[in-house]
Amino acid sequence: MLHAVLRGPGLVESLGGLGPDKMTGERMDADAALMLQFKEGHEEAFLKLFAKYQAPIINFCFRFCSERTLAEDLAQEVFLRVYRGRGRYRVEARFSTWLYRIAVNVCLNETRKLRKNYGTYSLDQPANDDPDSRVPEFPDENQVLVDDAMVSHQRDERIHRALQTLPDPQRIALVLRIYDEFPYDEIASRMNVSEGKVKTLIFRGRRRLREALEGVL
């Protein structure tokens, strides 16, 4: 059966038994094979996919929304859709393409819904303005390290804030390109748009970020 067609590092040659899937007879990635095993009832195959992709998907969501807890909720929603959608799964593209397409949809459609569960905060404002509750500052020999960490943290916050100023499609295209290093054709598949559109989205996103990060560059 499916196990018998596993060949080579990370690739599977499909020899049949996969139904009318488009990739039947072509080379299929190992993750798609795992997903098919899960579809057949092997839950351990899902566990492997979950372990492999949880960090990349959380980070994709985090870079999209800039909120850690929300990012984990979004990522859980992505895997929930994979879990529940196993019966309808067909190998029509690489597994990761399918997974990221779900992640893009979840980020675009669920963020507003899920964000209501969290208190909104402004990145422009300090976390706590109450002077009585400020932690007193004592300079010590580690102060330089602490300062470095603070500068680094503030810079990261500024970058997250700048990313949030981009329209959703520009942000998604840029995140997929810069962090996940996908080529334009794969980004186009994941976003369900043309390659030309991806090129424009990334170009405009970079220019906009350049303006937003003027003082940091």
Binding site: I58, R63, I159, Y179, L209, L213, L217
Partner: peptide, 17 residues
Amino acid sequence: VDHLLRGVPAVSPSADF
């Protein structure tokens, strides 16, 4: 801009994820 973006550290899944 690309260098700045790439410099932002990735997050790890929380213990409860």
